[in-house]
């Protein structure tokens, strides 16, 4: 059935704008914002190489890996939701979006646990430039995840009320683009702070 549906609703043709223009303006604002923050990271790292090399050992690798797996799995669910909508499978789309929400909520839950762990290990705002840069970037990312979760709630509502169809689901695609970009930025932050020696 899925194969037949894919034949009826094939992948979009080349040269299109995924989602809509407005979302891509927002996405490139987000990308620019994080590019500037990454510049701050690299300059700080260049000036304090030993501090940054010792940094990952101070953080919880388990938490960092946990965020990564939650976001990747949530993104996978969103990608499936878009494909389900293209195949006119609204209920399946809603189920995938529910999965995306559950895994997406795993991110702030892990953040709460990690911050408590950090503070218990003396990693607060006075713990040096590595920790300050880490909080600066990761809390900014957390804010973007919150926007994404709010957007996810909105597209779930729209899907549940039958507002999207196989022919018209631009809003769902636009949200998917934002969510995947937020995922992409995390895939950059994770190795910078949790892995790079």
């Amino acid at each position: 059935m899925t194969t037949a549906a894919n034949l009826l609703h094939p992948a979009p043709s080349a040269g299109r704008i995924p989602g809509n223009k407005a979302m891509w303006v927002g996405i490139f604002c987000e990308v620019t914002e994080f590019a500037l923050m990454f510049a701050v990271y690299f300059v700080a790292r260049a000036h304090h190489p030993e501090v940054f090399a010792a940094g990952p050992a101070r953080l919880s690798l388990l938490a960092g890996t946990g965020y990564t797996l939650m976001l990747l799995t949530s993104g996978w669910c969103v990608a499936h939701a878009v494909h389900a909508m293209r195949a006119s499978r609204q209920q399946a789309c809603l189920r995938w979006l529910t999965g995306a929400l559950l895994f997406g909520l795993g991110y702030p839950v892990i953040k709460l646990i990690e911050v408590r762990w950090n503070l218990a290990h003396g990693l607060d705002g006075s713990a040096g430039i590595f920790v300050v840069t880490y909080y600066y970037l990761t809390f900014n990312h957390l804010i973007h995840v919150f926007w994404g979760l709010l957007g996810l709630g909105w597209v779930m509502l729209r899907t549940g009320t039958g507002s999207y169809s196989a022919d018209d689901h631009v809003g769902l695609e636009a949200f998917a683009c934002y969510w995947h970009t937020t995922d992409i930025i995390w895939l950059m932050i994770f190795p910078l702070f949790y892995l790079l020696p």
Binding site: P18, H180, D183
Partner: peptide, 25 residues
């Protein structure tokens, strides 16, 4: 090695989740 793993993961998300291969240039 970390950079290479990062590059592969980013490319996978860009091409297969974000569908950049069909996006406008």
């Amino acid at each position: 090695l970390v950079a290479l793993v990062m590059a592969v993961k980013l490319r996978l998300v860009c091409d297969n989740f974000l569908e950049l291969r069909t996006a406008t240039p």
